[in-house]
Nucleic acid binder design. Sequence first.
DNA 1: TAATTTGACTTGTCTGACAAGCAGATGTCT
DNA 2: AGACATCTGCTTGTCAGACAAGTCAAATTA
Lengths: 236, 236
Amino acid sequence: MSITKVRLSDQVYLELKRMLEEKEFSPGDKFHSENELTAMLGVSRSSIREALRLLEVAGFVTVQHGKGIFVSDPGNAGQKALEKWLNENETSLSEHFEIRLIIDPKAAASAARKADESDIKKLREICAQFKQSVAKGNTADTINFDEQFHLTLAKSTKNRTLYMIMKTMTQSLPEGWISSLHVPGRIEKTIKEHCAIVDAIEARDLARAEQKMAEHLTNALNDIRSSMHKDPEVTK
Amino acid sequence: MSITKVRLSDQVYLELKRMLEEKEFSPGDKFHSENELTAMLGVSRSSIREALRLLEVAGFVTVQHGKGIFVSDPGNAGQKALEKWLNENETSLSEHFEIRLIIDPKAAASAARKADESDIKKLREICAQFKQSVAKGNTADTINFDEQFHLTLAKSTKNRTLYMIMKTMTQSLPEGWISSLHVPGRIEKTIKEHCAIVDAIEARDLARAEQKMAEHLTNALNDIRSSMHKDPEVTK
DNA sequence: TAATTTGACTTGTCTGACAAGCAGATGTCT
DNA sequence: AGACATCTGCTTGTCAGACAAGTCAAATTA
């Protein structure tokens, strides 16, 4: 039997995690300050801070200099880990696309089966907002609503793990992906393609939802490639 | 533009990670001590220690009280965090299966396109070893080779991100999954199904590889369910 | 009233100190 | 000489206190 002396900061980590779960903190709430925590737990600030680093990478809290410690959306918890890995291993455009092409279409099919009316309503709203932002020429919003569309779709599969993976992938896209919306004509096509996907979901047509999503991704990638170089070959 | 003041410990984290990668440390090697690092990087020990906690959860190093800091196998690096999330959020059997059913068949198709001869050779070897362990009645090995099969297949897609996701999913299966091999007749079916998949990959038949993998997973799940309860409904 | 300053609070970093675990060198006794 | 105990120097773990730096609101001033 190995009696492992548990590091104090690890115990603090578990204790703080317990507090966050049990006390039912809401996302965005301000958590206790470092000084408060040292008093509450009776350990030094160093140990508190080391535990905070762990809570941070685990996605339970976000720490802001001068402001304080804030509870983050538990839906984000754990996701940061994957996100970090993706960023540090700078996945190529083709790798990213390959996975998106595997997951997203099937997720669309799954959504066509499991999405409830509020999900579909929200998807329609996002499509409308997307169209609006395009009309206004607000590119920041446009990019954001494009992201929102894929995320809402992922959420309506009711599969938390699937949602987590897709959310992470979506939010840590490689460079070129975002620029696809700058390709002439791509935005207009995106509007139509998104609508077609929602239509299929609403009609509970699994196969069509899957197909439309696959088309959407493939079209986007083709436009990206042709805009970047004339070279159709991607990396190696 | 948000100019984010980067935390010093985060910079140290990146710097240490760079050192670990570039200097080509071997797993098990002793890394620089905390005091050496403070001298080398010119920052306080606090910052070094906070960075070390990050390196630790990321799986790059292991720290032992009184002995020192040791380099760990980089193959596992980064994955531990995601594994932690999956364990802490105890994904249900149906959630796990849904994702496997999305990813694995497509991965098999991708492998049918990208696997080289050594990959296929290795897959055949694992199939043979699987069969051997079954004959010997060594269940531990049997489970291990089953895992190996799916991992090797994932690796032969040449997509690191895909491999990382599949590896994590495979290694943190929910309870019931492993017990599928204990269902009477399941092992024999597994042998045939694995062979059929490898055959398809060797023949470069993308569609068949995808289909055989889907069948394999579906059959496994059905056997699990029927063995657990007569109830075909899963969770809620 | 409006702009500015002050001050209290937050997290970020540094320093020095001591406890605790480990391993090899040293020394002592048989 | 060999076996055992001790000492010493390294390591990480924890603590306490100090100051820098960012943030926000109340108090002060023009």
